Each structure stands twice: as structure tokens, then as C-alpha cells.
Lab assay of single mutants.
Amino acid sequence: MDSLLMNRRKFLYQFKNVRWAKGRRETYLCYVVKRRDSATSFSLDFGYLRNKNGCHVELLFLRYISDWDLDPGRCYRVTWFTSWSPCYDCARHVADFLRGNPNLSLRIFTARLYFCEDRKAEPEGLRRLHRAGVQIAIMTFKDYFYCWNTFVENHERTFKAWEGLHENSVRLSRQLRRILLPLYEVDDLRDAFRTLGL
């Protein structure tokens, strides 16, 4: 685990949702873990991680939370803000982990979509996460503002959007929607068949 708060310049560089993210070879993951008790929730931990020694950050987080003694009788909500969406292998590990821990839910807000040039399996990884109940969305100004005030050593500076933040968020949201769209259509068809008694 690194220091509790991320350096301001590092956050702006790593999380910037630019179309061509040249040189950004690491994934950063800011997280919040909450325990839900009926209508209220309690923050248990927050911080950030990054890839280390060739190990992807998603797997580092799974190792980290596996060391906790999570009460199977309580519900936990984990929220990630990531600089890149998970690769196919990490998505598979996360989905398997969630299946083994049904009392834990995960939301992922990502700055950019990761696509490995040689495999093109990453969209299927995102669909697999979605099927496992993970809520996946692209970061918007509101999410960047929250991260800036929660995870960044900002020295009381106000978060300022860079040129193109909104447009890139919209573009990436549409792309993510197209990736997940087949799932929505299949769910709609299943509901229609059930309604018709087929």
C-alpha cells in the first residue's frame, strides 16, 4: 500500500481520460470499502493502490481484502475508481471472487477503457463483470471531483476539469454501453419471453 493520498500531478496524469493515453502503463485504483447495515453504511477503509512487481492492481486489491475477516452475515460495498478498466484475466478473477463472496458488491468507475491489442478479449471481460453483478461506469466530472477531494493530496486546491473531460466521458460511456448492450438486449428478451410464458 502506498501513502494514503495520491500526489496531485500523478492523479491528473494517470486518470486523465484522454483519447490517446501514451505512456500510461500502470493502473491506479482508488477504493472505498463500506459495510452496509440496513439503511446506513459505515466506511471501513479507503485508499489507493497501483500495479506492483508485475501484479495487476485488481489482484492486489483482492489479496488485500481477502486478508480481512469479512463477516459473511453482513453486506459490504466496494467502490473502485480506476485509471484503466480491468483486463480480461483480472475481470475473470474479480468475477470469481465476487461469486465466492456474495455479501460483497462492487462498483467500478473507470477513466479509460483498456483494450489489449493482440487479444481483444477485454470487452468480454467487462461483460463477465457485468454478469457477476458489477456496476461499471465511466468516470464523469462528479467522480473526478470526489476522487480529488478524497484520495488526492490537493493542498486545498479546487479540482478543475481539463479540456475534453466531458466529451471524452460521453464518448467512453457510449463505447462501454455498446460493449454491455448485448447483455441488456438478452435480459430484455428473457423478460419478454417470461411475460409471454415461453
Results as ranks from 00 to 15, higher is better:
E122T: 05
E122K: 03
P123L: 11
K120D: 09
Y114C: 00
L113N: 03
E117S: 13
E122C: 11
Y114G: 03
A121E: 05
L113H: 00
A121D: 05
R119Y: 12
Y114A: 02
C116T: 04
P123K: 05
E117K: 09
F115Q: 06
P123Y: 02
Y114V: 00
L113Q: 03
D118T: 09
D118G: 05
E122P: 05
L113G: 09
P123I: 07
F115Y: 15
E117V: 12
F115W: 14
K120Y: 15
F115M: 12
A121W: 00
A121T: 02
Y114I: 00
P123S: 04
L113V: 08
E122S: 08
P123C: 10
E117H: 10
K120R: 15
E122M: 08
D118A: 15
D118W: 02
C116L: 04
E122Q: 12
D118E: 11
Y114T: 00
F115D: 03
R119E: 13
K120L: 08
E117R: 08
R119T: 13
Y114R: 02
A121V: 11
C116W: 08
K120F: 15
D118K: 04
L113I: 00
K120I: 00
F115R: 07
K120Q: 06
K120T: 10
R119C: 12
C116D: 00
F115G: 02
Y114L: 02
K120C: 13
P123D: 00
A121F: 00
E117M: 12
K120V: 06
F115I: 07
P123F: 04
Y114M: 03
Y114E: 00
C116G: 07
K120H: 14
D118F: 05
A121Q: 14
L113K: 00
E122H: 10
Y114P: 07
E122F: 10
Y114D: 09
E122R: 02
R119S: 12
C116P: 04
E122I: 00
F115A: 04
E117D: 15
L113D: 00
E122G: 12
R119D: 13
F115H: 15
E117N: 14
C116Y: 10
R119I: 06
F115C: 08
D118M: 13
A121P: 15
A121S: 07
Y114N: 00
R119W: 12
C116S: 03
C116Q: 00
E122D: 08
F115S: 05
D118R: 14
E117F: 10
K120E: 06
Y114F: 00
Y114W: 03
Y114S: 00
K120G: 06
D118C: 05
P123W: 04
D118L: 11
A121I: 00
L113Y: 07
P123E: 06
E122Y: 00
E122L: 04
L113A: 07
K120N: 10
A121G: 06
F115E: 03
C116R: 04
E122A: 10
R119H: 14
K120M: 09
K120A: 09
R119G: 15
A121K: 12
A121C: 00
C116F: 11
D118Y: 09
A121M: 11
D118I: 00
L113E: 09
L113R: 08
E117Y: 09
F115P: 02
E122W: 04
R119F: 11
K120W: 13
D118H: 14
P123V: 06
E117G: 10
L113S: 09
C116H: 03
P123T: 03
E117L: 09
A121H: 08
D118S: 07
C116N: 09
Y114Q: 02
D118P: 15
C116K: 06
P123M: 13
D118N: 14
E117C: 14
P123Q: 14
C116M: 07
R119M: 11
P123R: 15
C116E: 00
P123G: 02
R119Q: 12
F115K: 15
P123A: 08
E117A: 11
L113F: 10
F115N: 06
F115L: 07
P123H: 13
E117Q: 14
R119L: 10
L113C: 03
F115V: 07
A121R: 13
L113W: 03
P123N: 10
C116V: 13
R119V: 08
L113M: 05
R119N: 14
E117I: 11
A121Y: 13
D118V: 00
D118Q: 07
K120P: 04
R119A: 11
E117W: 06
E122V: 02
L113P: 05
Y114H: 04
E122N: 15
K120S: 11
E117T: 14
R119K: 12
L113T: 05
C116A: 12
R119P: 05
F115T: 02
Y114K: 00
A121L: 13
E117P: 06
C116I: 08
A121N: 08
